Amino acid sequence: MPHLVMEYTGNLAIDVQPTLQRLNQALVASGHFEENAIKARAVRLDDYLVGTASEARRAFVALRLAILSGRTVEEKKSVSDLLGAAIQKDQHWPKDVQVQITVEIVDMQRETYFKVSLQ
């Protein structure tokens, strides 16, 4: 915990590892998560559609952060804002493409979440 999933459309040239590093650093900086507990991954989407326009003209990055339940709305909003700022930093967005960025915070039920760390 937490689990961060970054989905992005294939018409964006995102340098994945530095971007995930920046997102993880933002999560650590929030003060809510231990560095070694963050699990981040990226999923490139080659089959997608935004509205009805040509896929070459539109794109998106969707961040979904699953965290254990119990945090306040204010804490979740703060983390959402940090991730939103971090995903925009140092990116080279195409000038002729409308890019939509979203951040969603999802609660995982603390009572049913299982985790074990093996060496």
Rank of each mutant, 00 (worst) to 15 (best):
A62H: 13
Q25L: 06
I38Q: 00
E75F: 03
Q17F: 05
A86N: 09
T19D: 01
V79F: 05
E104H: 12
T19Q: 10
S54N: 08
H32S: 15
V99I: 15
G84S: 05
F60W: 13
L63I: 08
P94N: 11
S30E: 10
V79S: 06
P94S: 14
R41A: 02
S54F: 00
S54R: 05
V28A: 06
D15L: 08
L23C: 00
V28F: 11
A59Y: 07
L12E: 06
T72Q: 02
I67R: 15
R58V: 10
L63A: 07
G70R: 11
L83P: 12
E104C: 15
V50P: 00
L23D: 00
V97Y: 06
R57I: 09
E74H: 07
A40S: 10
P94C: 08
G84E: 09
Q98F: 14
D96I: 10
T19Y: 05
A13K: 12
D47S: 04
A26L: 03
K39T: 00
T72R: 01
S30T: 13
V28S: 02
T52L: 03
Q25C: 03
A40Y: 01
R41T: 05
E74Q: 08
I38W: 00
K89S: 10
E75K: 05
E75C: 01
G31F: 09
V73P: 12
T72F: 03
I67F: 14
V43A: 06
I87Q: 01
T19V: 06
R57A: 12
Q17M: 07
G31T: 12
A42G: 04
G31D: 08
A37D: 12
D47M: 04
T72M: 02
Q100T: 11
D15S: 12
G51K: 03
P94A: 14
R64D: 07
E75V: 06
E55Q: 07
R44N: 01
L82Y: 08
K76P: 02
L23I: 00
A59E: 07
D15C: 06
N11H: 02
